[in-house]
Design a binder for these strands. Structure first.
Length: 563
RNA sequence: GGCCCCAUGGUCAAGAGGUUAAGACAUCGCCCUUUCACGGCGGUAACCCGGGUUCAAUUCCCGGUGGGGUCACCA
């Protein structure tokens, strides 16, 4: 068989060779030790935690080594594409602090070339195109070489034929797939190929595997070390009928010509390592360093078992979930970093104020077993992040969030800026800041008692205080209330009411001698607290009232006397 | 089922051939306090099982078991 002739017959219009491409995409000029990484999503419009997780690894690895982190769009499957997905992806990643040095970008980026694929996007950099659907000729040049060397061949098998083979194999308990004698079109004659094509038959290009499953090879993974696997024996499809490559081939070609030094991807790709290694070898290229990170898991409520976070079942997988709830992007990032890198949390405790970019990220410290997503931990991390923010920063964030997701709250925020600045400032700063703010929606629930529209009684009145006493307390309280009192003068008055009505001024006295009193000052102030805030727990009451102003305090007390 | 990855408290995890087996979250108790939050102190709680190597294994090896991933003209 004259493979060269076959290659020319199959790809008459492809005159470029991989050598030509080599000259077109020369080795990058980068400092010693610089890593080149990439994020290579398919534009499905769904951006999940795993994407961010991987993107953070890419970003850190590249930027802490003065390397390059680029964005490549894997749009070889039209069915999965969603119009406008790329600008959204860019926005979301940028929101979480991930920015790319080259590759796909938004259409308005200065100096970028327009994308033929998506009008709202473009690309920068000299290793493009960065949209796989635009790289068809590059892939074909590589496929042509493989065909010319007898390492790939056209396969005309129909889906039905393949399905039937699979059935046979499964009935005989054999490994499924196109290999060995099942690779029926491996050695068609040139004439037959010619005839089939002339008859209008369509085909894919398969790789001719010379692998032997009893032979093992090893690859080094940045997280796991040496991985040993049997060679691939499958004749995998490398060029599909739509003239675009499968993931396997695109990965090999692109990461070679774009000079990716570290391939960060999900663990689910590990199983196809034998194919990739084989393809790199067939092209005569070096294999990049792989970094297979773990998948995020959760406990399934119905089965009680650990399972991969799923797009359909788990809203918390989508990044938009955190945006909509109003988590600070730093909080999500901090959380991901703590589960990504086992030494991050300790570093953060030692360096509470440092920029996270100062942390030295190493793949050896990355987790190698499936990590359970823990909302508790996220919330805890988020509290710490927010505790370090100023009231103005929190206000601005809330405002931006509400503008996007909740117009009513936006108006509320905009109309009450001065007051809210004070609210967010309660117990903020200093040695022991409050840590009770987590995310925008939760924060609104937390401060809702400041607004008459959302105020409600959320706690029970203290059982120690009778309904009569309650009215008496409130009546005396409002009669004596003077916003000009400082915190201690104010509390002295509360103590006065407490003693007059037969309650213990010191909680300890009551505890020692419960029969001598009706209750203690905590119960009395509890009545006032619930009257003013609707709940038994609140930040410092005196401060809250200072912010509310006398009129609102009086209204609340009045309302409570009739409650 | 084949192949691969993984296995330390409820969760995330550190760790070394000999340790009282870190730390964080969660949880419980106490202290502080007019409530909560913060903070402080303390508690409960772990090396999957079986062989082997070794003076010694949770740590190394093998085999199970368990969990996960993957077996497309999807990525």
């Amino acid at each position: 068989m004259d493979y060269k002739k076959l290659a020319d017959f199959l790809f008459p219009d492809i005159d470029q060779t991989p050598e030509d491409l080599e000259a077109l995409y020369p080795k990058r000029q980068l400092p010693e030790g610089a890593e080149v990484t990439r994020l290579a999503p398919s534009p499905t419009g769904f951006i999940h935690l795993g994407n961010l997780y991987g993107a953070m690894v890419d970003e850190r690895l590249a930027h802490q080594s003065n390397g390059v982190c680029y964005l490549r769009i894997e749009d070889t499957d039209e069915k999965r594409e969603v119009e406008g997905a790329v600008p959204v992806l860019l926005d979301v990643l940028s929101y979480f602090g991930i920015n790319f040095d080259e590759g796909a970008c938004k259409a308005d980026k200065p100096g970028c070339r327009p994308s033929n694929v998506e009008p709202s996007a473009g690309e920068t950099g000299s290793y493009g195109p960065y949209w796989q659907s635009m790289r068809s000729r590059i892939y074909k040049a590589c496929v042509k070489k493989l065909v010319a060397e007898g390492k790939a061949y056209p396969c005309f098998m129909s889906e039905e034929e393949i399905a039937q083979i699979r059935e046979e194999q499964s009935a005989a308990k054999l490994d499924p797939g196109i290999y060995g004698k099942y690779a029926k079109h491996r050695d068609l004659s040139f004439e037959e190929i010619q005839a089939r094509i002339a008859a209008g038959e369509t085909y894919v290009i398969r790789f001719r595997s010379e692998g032997d499953a009893s032979r093992y090879f090893t690859v080094r993974d940045a997280i796991r070390g040496e991985i040993s696997m049997p060679e691939n024996i499958q004749d995998v499809v490398i060029l599909k009928k739509n003239d675009l490559p499968t993931y396997h081939f695109a990965h090999v070609v692109d990461d070679h010509f774009m000079h990716t030094s570290v391939v960060v991807r999900g663990e689910e790709w590990m199983a196809s390592l034998p194919i990739h290694v084989q393809l790199f070898a067939a092209m005569g290229w070096d294999v990049p360093l792989y970094c297979h990170n773990t998948v995020l898991m959760k406990i399934d409520e119905t089965t009680g078992q650990k399972r991969k976070l799923s797009k359909r079942k788990d809203p918390e997988l989508g990044l938009s979930y955190y945006k909509e709830l109003g988590y600070f992007p730093e909080a999500v990032r901090e959380y991901l970093l703590t589960i990504l890198c086992s030494d991050y949390e300790e570093w953060r405790i030692a360096n509470p104020l440092a920029d996270y970019n100062e942390f030295h990220f190493s793949t050896e410290k990355m987790s190698d077993s499936g990590t359970l997503f823990d909302i508790n931990k996220l919330n805890d991390v988020s509290k710490d992040v927010l505790a370090k923010k100023s009231a103005a920063e929190i206000y601005d964030f809330m405002l931006g969030w509400a503008k996007e997701f909740d117009q009513a709250k936006y108006k509320l925020l905009a109309d009450n800026k001065d007051m809210l600045l004070k609210v967010f400032d309660i117990d903020r700063g200093g040695e022991k800041p409050r840590k009770d703010l987590i995310y925008a929606q939760q924060i609104f629930a937390f401060i809702k008692y400041f607004f008459d529209d959302t105020f409600e009684y959320e706690s029970e009145w203290p059982a120690e205080v009778s309904a009569e006493d309650r009215k008496e307390i409130l009546a005396r309280y409002i009669a004596g209330y003077d916003p000009a009192d400082d915190n201690s003068a104010w509390f002295e008055k509360v103590r006065g009411i407490t003693a007059d009505l037969g309650y213990a001024v010191k909680p300890k006295d009551y505890k020692k001698n419960p029969d001598a009193y009706k209750g203690h000052v905590g119960h009395v102030s509890g009545v006032i607290r619930i009257a003013v805030t609707g709940r038994a727990n609140s930040p410092d009451l005196w401060t809250v009232q200072q912010i509310m102003g006398k009129e609102k305090v009086a209204q609340r007390i009045e309302k409570a006397m009739h409650a």
